[in-house]
């Protein structure tokens, strides 16, 4: 663990909490893309299947459980509890055009052709484009509420900090994971134009 990855995880945690609190307090999910939240739930579910097979650390296990629980709680708030405030008309991104290519790419380019590893790779590829429906919705509605902007800024910062973590780990442990790095760079670049507006 290093400071870059720790602050990255905390930025990620912050983003999720900001979103949950925003929807809960305002009792509305207006301006929030439910489709991006579906993609995030798929990302965490396919990536954290190793919860039952591999124990890395208490921190790792706790964070995975929190990310899984919060992503499904967010889906519950959007699609069930505050369903009436969900903005169907502006949340129109075809997420199957993200899921399928990510899955096919995961079958072609991975570290090992095993069930868990292909799903982990799929989750890495999917996460890099998971925010597209949200950015698409923000561009369609022409504006993002300030809280949504804070959410996107924290979420974008998390993977940018992970890039610093990968540089640090390459320099100190000579450890690197090219799949995660390339996808992480794509993910951060997608936020850049939003950061520019921010």
């Amino acid at each position: 663990m290093n400071i870059f990855r720790l602050t990255g995880d905390l930025a990620h945690l912050l983003a999720i909490i900001i979103l949950l609190l925003k929807i809960w307090k305002t009792r509305s999910c207006a301006g929030i893309s439910g489709k991006s939240q579906i993609l995030f739930a798929i990302v965490y579910t396919t990536r954290y299947l190793d919860l039952v097979t591999t124990y890395v650390s208490a921190y790792n296990t706790l964070m995975k459980i929190f990310f899984l629980a919060s992503s499904y709680a967010t889906l519950y708030l959007i699609y069930i509890k505050f369903k009436a405030t969900y903005d169907h008309n502006h949340d129109t991104f075809r997420i199957e055009f993200l899921i399928l290519p990510a899955f096919i790419l995961a079958l072609l380019i991975n570290h090992a052709f095993t069930f868990l590893e292909v799903l982990w790779t799929f989750s890495i590829y999917l996460e890099s484009v998971a925010i597209l429906p949200q950015l698409f919705m923000v561009s369609k509605t022409g504006e993002a509420e300030s809280i949504t902007s804070h959410y996107l800024f924290a979420l974008g910062s998390y993977r940018a900090l992970y890039i610093l973590n990968w540089i640090y780990r390459y320099a100190t442990e000579v450890h690197y994971d090219l799949i995660a790095i390339v996808a992480g760079i794509v993910q951060t670049v997608l936020y850049c134009d939003f950061f520019y507006l921010y």
């Binding site: 990620h12 995975k64 090992a112 590893e117 982990w120």
Partner: peptide, 10 residues
């Protein structure tokens, strides 16, 4: 042997 990749990052 099949390379077992352990992912220690979230």
């Amino acid at each position: 042997a099949r390379p077992v990749v352990v992912h220690d990052e979230l």
